[in-house]
């Protein structure tokens, strides 16, 4: 960490300052407007949302960084993960813990499989035609959404009980909260650290990072880049599915959740800078916080929850204007 800050480029150093200042502003506004307790709750909700967004966005960012493919089907991965997990949860016998575990495993594996097939069969032949790749992932997203609706129906699915281990409450900022929420935050942090370590401390991570810089060179070193591509794609898909299943006890499963999180993830990527892992992590939390504060603000003053949705987009537009490559993007 020490050396990390020493080696920052001026642009990134400025971005860090911006980020800190922005979060401070959000914090001040909430403290001044909502009072300490509500402000604390809002921040907690923001971080929680940020972690969920991170699960989708990190996959998107990883895949884009390495493969130069922006996977518009990432939202559909989350959706499929959630619905398949939900289905398995209801079908499996046993305690809530077992069922939840089964849901996680089956959902993630199923989506990872879809990701693998999609990368090998459909994405790979199209590397020479990037526009078609873009269009393909977009179209597949729509097709997946359609298939899920056909198979599971359009009605929203009610939230399910979280595992018994996490089904008790704790008190924070004067509000009783389920441990499950804390679990999601911890899960997000674990994934952040996990992916960070994978990228920085393992051989495969070094290959991935080198591949992001210069795929041809990696290929020239005699490493099978294709396999690494597939791996990253599968990893991204799996993370999104995990996010979808993690959402079930929290808000159930709805057809709209895929696109909702895809948009948020896109905002995150634009803000954080495409292909930058730290940028994605930081921007996820910023977007989560912004969203939560905007929600709280509009609830308190305008009675118009939709304004929260626009707030995030405005943030994205602002960043696009001042820093077209995102806060932590590679300058071109």
């Amino acid at each position: 960490m020490h050396s990390y800050f020493a080696h920052l480029s001026p642009q990134h150093r400025r971005s860090w300052l911006l980020v800190v200042a922005y979060v401070a502003v959000l914090l001040t506004i909430s403290l001044a407007d909502f009072g300490a307790n509500t402000a604390g709750q809002t921040m907690f909700r923001g971080v929680l949302l940020g972690m969920l967004i991170f699960l989708v966005a990190s996959g998107l960012s990883l895949i884009f960084g390495l493969l130069d493919v922006l996977n518009f089907a990432q939202g559909a991965f989350l959706l499929i993960g959630a619905y398949v997990g939900y289905d398995v949860y209801l079908r499996v016998d046993g305690s809530a813990d077992v069922r939840f575990l089964a849901a996680i495993i089956s959902g993630v594996v199923f989506v990872a499989l879809i990701g693998a097939i999609m990368e090998m069969g459909l994405i790979r032949p199209l590397y020479a035609r990037p526009v078609f790749q873009l269009v393909l992932t977009f179209g597949l997203g729509a097709i997946f959404l359609d298939l899920v609706e056909r198979y599971y129906g359009a009605d929203p699915k009610q939230p399910l009980a979280p595992p018994s281990l996490l089904n008790s409450n704790f008190s924070l900022f004067g509000q009783s909260l389920s441990y499950y929420r804390l679990f999601i935050i911890v899960l997000g942090i674990v994934m952040m650290i996990g992916v960070f370590l994978l990228l920085n401390r393992t051989r495969i991570g070094i290959i991935i990072r080198a591949g992001v810089q210069d795929p041809e060179m990696v290929q020239a070193l005699g490493i099978n880049v294709w396999r690494v591509f597939t791996l990253v794609f599968v990893l991204g898909a799996g993370l999104a599915a995990l996010g979808g299943i993690a959402l079930i006890p929290y808000q159930g499963a709805t057809l709209g959740m895929g696109n909702q999180f895809l948009i948020l993830a896109i905002v995150v990527i634009v803000i954080g800078g495409m292909g930058s892992f730290e940028g994605t992590a930081i921007a996820s939390i910023i977007v989560g916080l912004t969203r939560a504060v905007a929600e709280q603000l509009s609830l308190a003053h305008f009675n118009a929850p939709v304004l929260a949705e626009t707030s995030v987009l405005l943030l994205m537009i602002a960043v696009l204007l001042v820093q077209p490559n995102g806060l932590f993007g590679r300058g071109e």
């Binding site: 884009f64 922006l70 518009f72 526009v131 873009l134 977009f138 948009i263 896109i266 905002v267 990527i269 634009v270 495409m274 987009l313 994205m316 696009l320 077209p324």
Partner: peptide, 11 residues
């Protein structure tokens, strides 16, 4: 172009 695609989708 990719930013444009994302931007229009979000908008």
């Amino acid at each position: 172009g990719i930013y444009f695609a994302m931007f229009t989708l979000a908008l």
